[in-house]
Nucleic acid binder design. Structure first.
Lengths: 163, 163
DNA sequence: GTTACTGCAAACGATTTGCAAGTGG
DNA sequence: CCACTTGCAAATCGTTTGCAGTAAC
């Protein structure tokens, strides 16, 4: 079994646990979408290309279901979302990609990816191979104490209901 | 003259130069919008609140003009844009604010600001005062060589036309 | 005078929603 | 079976656009 197959199984199991714990249904669509993301995407992808790609592989889904499922995948941390502009959302699998920075041209909107640390240090020098840096922003995603607490309570209730 | 008045004059001059050089018209709306941003906003703001705030100060502008002008301000670097979600664009004046990171709760969407370096180091430890970090992304904005070259050509043409 | 800019209202497009039909538990 | 999901089409909402009137130069 190659490493990608192993990863696909791992994330499937994780999604399974997540759905079971939260009492969400384990529908074929949900697993197909996750598997499609982990087997046929490498870097960034958007909803439209994911939709077309799944249709092309002869898996019928609606866009509504895609959006619904992506929300679950974001919530359980298997997929990460990037917002590059008002109408430019890109997604990315969380595992199996190296962590990277995003270099964005504010004129044409092109996004490049660069290895974290290497770029971060050279940014300080304000100029890296033909790209003129104007500013940079760090976005740190996670869960605040309020939501973390609410989640914990919710989960406790669910587990209790199991007896 | 206090430091904010000084800053307002500085950015006005810079905008003036930018508009003149590019042969864009120096309309009262454009200067009013810039001045409003530099005098009545501190941290993040969005277009809707900017619009309402300007109307409240008895300055009539249309949303179309606001968007048009913000594009110019972004282009000349006097304003910076943050995209926190598909429908959450926030803007911020470039000068007169300390540089900061953005801490975003993926559940409720709240955004906190934190001083750059202090947070960056504590992020590595994966947990900062009651906020659980899941991942972080660095976005580096600037101009790629292609657009930079195109801009330079454009500018050269404009200057030449002046004789 | 020309031409770019403004304001208005209508258009846009990615995402969300309401509802009927389908299906997991 | 019942409630959750799905698929479809219509609705949403921030942003953009077309057009007629206005003002910068």
């Amino acid at each position: 079994m190659d490493s990608n197959q192993k990863l696909r199984k791992q994330v499937k199991d994780e999604f399974m646990n997540y759905l079971t714990l939260r009492k969400h249904r384990r529908t074929p669509e949900r697993f197909a979408i996750l598997d499609h993301i982990y087997s046929s995407t490498k870097g960034h992808f958007d909803m439209d290309s994911l939709y077309k790609s799944m249709i092309e592989s002869n898996f019928r889904v609606s866009r509504a279901t895609l959006y619904n499922t992506i929300d679950l995948l974001l919530d359980c941390g298997l997929v990460v979302k990037h917002q590059f502009g008002a109408n430019v959302s890109k997604y990315e699998r969380k595992y199996g990609n190296e962590n990277h920075d995003h270099i964005i041209c504010t004129v044409c909107g092109t996004v490049w990816e660069a290895k974290n640390e290497a770029f971060f240090t050279s940014v300080q020098q304000k100029k890296i191979k033909k790209f003129t840096v104007h500013y940079y922003s760090m976005y740190i995603y996670g869960i605040c104490s309020k939501c973390s607490h609410a989640k914990k309570m919710e989960l406790r209730k669910l587990k209790k209901a199991d007896k």
